[in-house]
């Protein structure tokens, strides 16, 4: 016993077990691990297939299928996918799509977050007539199928000369990003004490000065969440890019579908999969870097009224 001398042990240790209960790996626990292991395989399978196939030469794919590990590793498919794979007669690979996506992404993300934050701020702090109605309309907008809006938007863009331009795409992303962005910031601002806002009013703050000087700097966590949400969302968009982008502004997702579309001759699966990984890379990198913030974005986007 290592107890201090001054302490008198009143009752000695008795018979039977002492110390920590022995840990045994119960069947239930083995079952849990097995379930998780199999699930992990299921979720990893597509990523595995893509990566493995993209670094195999075609002969190996022909012989061993897409699941076997490569015996020779080649990065040629990646190079080809990026810069020389053909879509019809255009043999520039998927890189033009990548740059198109970047050109669409940057202004769309900035504009949609800004408008969403501004609207959320106005709706949560300034009691204006019709605010509830506006909010309800926005909320509804988050749920409606795009197909209802698409045809008239095509006509409007054509009439205004915006069709097939980057502007049309940016505007579209602002329009359809607004509900979630507004909701996100409105809920966030709802958690900021009204007294803070009142103090700013008393100090002579106006609508825009309070927004830019006080609220926007305070919303950095939400701005990060919004950024993650919008970058992945807009990068992954297909239908808007397909409908409004025209030939010149095809985003990467649209370009990818054209690239992998069956053509005459043998399908270069390794090139196709390399192009697919590249298309998935941006949101995946965002996901891996952001970690828990990504989950927070999901929770915030989970539309809790």
């Amino acid at each position: 016993m290592t107890a201090p001398e001054t302490r008198i042990r009143s009752v000695p240790m008795g018979e039977g077990p002492s110390g920590p209960a022995p840990k045994s790996l119960s069947t239930a626990r083995i079952g849990i691990y097995a379930f998780l292991f199999i699930s992990a395989l299921f979720f990893l399978l597509p990523l595995y297939v893509m990566v493995v196939t993209s670094i195999k030469p075609m002969e190996e794919i022909r012989l061993g299928g897409i699941f076997a590990l490569p015996t020779t590793v080649t990065f040629e498919p990646w190079v080809k996918a990026w810069s020389s794979a053909c879509t019809g007669l255009d043999c520039r690979g998927i890189s033009p799509g990548f740059w198109n996506s970047v050109k669409i992404l940057v202004p769309s993300v900035i504009c949609s977050i800004f408008v969403g934050a501004l609207t959320g701020y106005a709706l949560s702090f300034w009691r204006v007539r019709g605010a509830n109605l506006l909010f309800a309309a926005l909320l509804l907008g988050a749920f409606l199928p795009y197909q209802v809006f698409i045809y008239p938007l095509v006509r409007i863009y054509s009439a205004t000369g915006l069709f097939s331009t980057i502007y049309a795409l940016v505007l579209t992303h602002v329009i359809f990003g607004l509900p979630v962005m507004t909701l996100l910031f409105r809920n966030y601002y709802a958690g900021i004490p009204v007294d803070l806002f009142k103090a700013a009013r008393v100090d002579g703050g106006r609508f825009f000065s309070i927004f830019f000087r006080l609220m926007l700097p305070m919303s950095i966590p939400m701005l990060v969440v919004a950024l993650i949400l919008q970058v992945t969302g807009i990068w992954n968009d297909f239908i808007m890019g397909l409908t409004f982008g025209g030939l010149a502004n095809r985003p990467m997702t649209v370009q990818l579908t054209n690239l992998v579309a069956p053509t005459e001759g043998e399908i270069a699966y390794n090139v196709n999969m390399a192009a697919t990984i590249m298309t998935a890379a941006v949101p995946l990198i965002v996901y891996f870097i952001s970690g828990r913030w990504f989950v927070r974005g999901i929770a915030a986007g989970a539309v809790k009224g």
């Binding site: 039977g16 002492s18 022995p22």
Partner: peptide
């Protein structure tokens, strides 16, 4: 919670585990 050392008796029974 798991203990590191010692015993717990309740009502004359060793209930440590």
């Amino acid at each position: 919670l798991d203990i590191t050392e010692g015993q717990i008796w309740i009502d004359g029974r060793n209930v440590t585990w």
